[in-house]
């Protein structure tokens, strides 16, 4: 049986108002609603990714403050789902949806505790959450009402923490890594970039959205895709290179199969 996420009660408890909705055509409202619904379940499901980091952090023997910070991130992702549920209801939708497939977080049995942790942190914080910062900050800039700007602002503040956690951990442990571990992590980056491209490629199937639709949170496919590629190439790759990882080569390898076709 597919698990269902039902946040109707949570959304009712603290309703959100989006003024001026009547003036927005139904299809534009529907595009925004679809996105907020997808977002609600994705945010909820991503709590398990942070939960899986806790035993990794402990096994790697990192400072307690990192374990505590990631513990808080689990709750933050769950809270984001409730924020999205409030928007869903405000847009006239139902805050009840099946959860997406809950892909297992890999055990990284071929790696030691620190290398396994860094694989996850690079994927989650340095890629996914760094891209999320750029995407959500872009959306917040375009939000049409104070209430939506507030929701996006809260989500953004947490995404900043989630991304910064990874970059700080790399700052802390990066200098201690030997050449072999750097080479192994650089090899892993190929899988990370392939995964990131696949994860964000649905943006390519979405059309551009009107200003009105974007102001409600409808995704603009071409614009979001550009934010993703610009963040990976302009922020993540230079950031990882700074830590002695061969991120440029890994990205080239990850994209070569697609671009050579």
């Amino acid at each position: 049986m597919t698990p269902v996420l039902d946040l109707r009660r949570e959304a009712r408890r603290d309703p959100l108002e989006i003024p001026g909705l009547d003036a927005i055509p139904a299809e534009e409202r529907a595009a925004a609603l679809a996105n907020w619904r997808e977002r609600m379940v994705s945010e909820h499901a991503s709590a398990r990714v942070f939960a899986a980091l806790i035993p990794r952090l402990m096994a790697a023997g990192v400072a307690r403050r990192h374990v505590a910070a990631v513990s808080a991130m689990i709750g933050q992702e769950l809270d984001h789902a409730v924020l999205c549920a409030r928007v869903v209801v405000a847009l006239g939708g139902e805050a009840k949806l099946p959860l997406p497939p809950l892909t297992a977080v890999p055990a990284h049995e071929d790696a030691g505790p620190l290398e396994g942790l860094l694989r996850d942190v690079i994927s989650v914080s340095c890629c996914s959450e760094t891209v999320a910062v750029a995407l959500v900050a872009t959306e917040r800039e375009q939000a049409g009402t104070a209430s939506l700007r507030g929701v996006l602002g809260k989500i953004l503040a947490d995404e900043v923490k989630h991304a910064r956690f990874g970059w700080r951990l790399l700052d802390e442990v990066g200098p201690t890594l030997d050449a072999r571990t750097r080479a192994r992590l650089s090899a892993y980056l190929v899988a990370v970039f392939e995964h990131q491209i696949a994860f964000h490629s649905p943006f390519l199937r979405l059309p551009s959205a009107s200003d009105r639709a974007v102001s409600l949170g409808a995704p603009d496919g071409p614009s979001n895709w550009r934010v993703f590629v610009d963040t990976i190439t302009g922020v993540t790759i230079p950031g990882l290179e700074r830590h002695g990882l061969d991120a440029e080569r890994a990205f080239r390898r990850a994209t070569s199969a697609v671009l050579a076709a």
């Binding site: 990714v49 890999p106 995964h195």
Partner: peptide
């Protein structure tokens, strides 16, 4: 489109 970090 998906939101929230996926499993690595």
């Amino acid at each position: 489109p998906c939101w929230g970090p996926p499993a690595p």
